[in-house]
Computed example of a mutant assay.
Amino acid sequence: MSTTTPPRSPDGVDIEFLTERLWNAVLNGDEYSATELVTRAVEEGVDAESVLLDVIAVVQGRVGQEWAANRFTVAQEHAATAINERAVAALAAHPAARTTASRGRITVACVDGEWHALPARLLSEVLKLRGWRVDYLGAQVPTPHLISHLHTIPADAVALSSSIATRLPTAHAAITACQAIGVPVLVGGAAFGPDGRYARLLGADAWAPDARSAADRLARGPLPRPQFDHQQVDDLPHLADQEYTLVARSSGTLVRTVFTALEDAFPAMRAYDEMQRERTAEDLAHIVEFLATALYLGDETLFPDFLAWTAQILAARGVPAQSLPPALALLARELKDFPRAARILEHGTEALTKTDHTTAAGNPA
């Protein structure tokens, strides 16, 4: 248990207590109590930004933890997220949380293919509270539509959000396209790594680990306008080997081939019901997608980390992870002529072995 003092608003209200009350409302599916709780808090003088980031965002993080531990179904996770989204909307619409725009204009959007929109929405509301005029475009914004918007409504910067690493190739395209028309890009979200390593790799103008840090960065001064004409075009030279392109384009074939061969390599699969077979196919698709992303980034740590996480998720659901090494071996056989892919798959298999040993010792990673 943490020994730190629970955060308190300026008027002495216990933020931890508010968080627990919101969690109970979310857990009970009670959107009315949730929205009433956050609006009453700001009416009573609790800082609106703190309600957004120290209460709602914390509860949403707990929702994700409950899903990962298999204590929430996907449907429950979606329902809980919807209630948190309503709580954000209720707070944003409340007169006590409104601020007159006194700064520039920021466009906030999720990368194409990114459906987890709440982090971007939280950033939007925090920026509004701090005096920015914000154009919030929501989830899954195709890059051409983002650029079209920027041509119509210019912005001082674009804030791009992504929580899933497999969206990084698309994020790279969006970053480059925005910079090509002279708009700097700040990125955030779990996809870019805990230290922002992928933000730097993909040439973003700034990175922030969370909404408060992003708002602080923008408050320190404008992001410099990108000098795209002088930017190195070949910023990912490892892509010249075409491994990423070939794996990405053949992903469907790879999944089908490995799935078919897996029945012989992992006989237990023959007893799977239809739902288990569908989930196995989905898992294989994710494996290939993460492999392709690792090839794109030229990063050999991303894929093993994903596999270790996947093994833990499977274990939480009572699903043996023993099918993963045979699947990786079959995938390696199909990609035997791809040196980088083979090396990444080897590292992934080693990571699974370490995870198995750690878990067997009663000390999950």
Rank of each mutant, 00 (worst) to 15 (best):
R249P: 04
D273Q: 08
G182Q: 03
Y32G: 00
L37R: 04
R167S: 13
R40W: 07
R256Y: 09
L160H: 06
F192G: 01
T170N: 05
V59W: 02
D283E: 12
C110D: 05
A80W: 02
S33E: 13
T355D: 00
H149Y: 08
A332V: 11
P267G: 10
V187W: 02
Q231G: 07
S102F: 08
R98L: 12
T152F: 09
A101W: 01
T257Q: 08
R86K: 12
L297S: 03
I83H: 05
Y272G: 12
A199S: 05
V247S: 05
A90L: 02
R103G: 09
L52D: 01
L202F: 07
V187L: 02
T81S: 08
L314E: 13
H94L: 03
A87C: 06
A316Q: 11
T257V: 14
A285T: 15
A190F: 14
A75W: 13
P364S: 06
E16Y: 12
W132K: 03
D241I: 02
G188W: 02
L302W: 00
A34E: 07
P142T: 14
V158T: 05
V141I: 15
A327H: 03
G29D: 00
R40S: 11
T152L: 14
Q179W: 00
V63F: 02
A87R: 08
L345Q: 09
E20Q: 04
P304S: 01
R277P: 10
A174S: 14
E77F: 11
A180I: 14
A199V: 04
Q65E: 14
I175L: 08
A171N: 07
D241H: 04
A199F: 01
L246S: 09
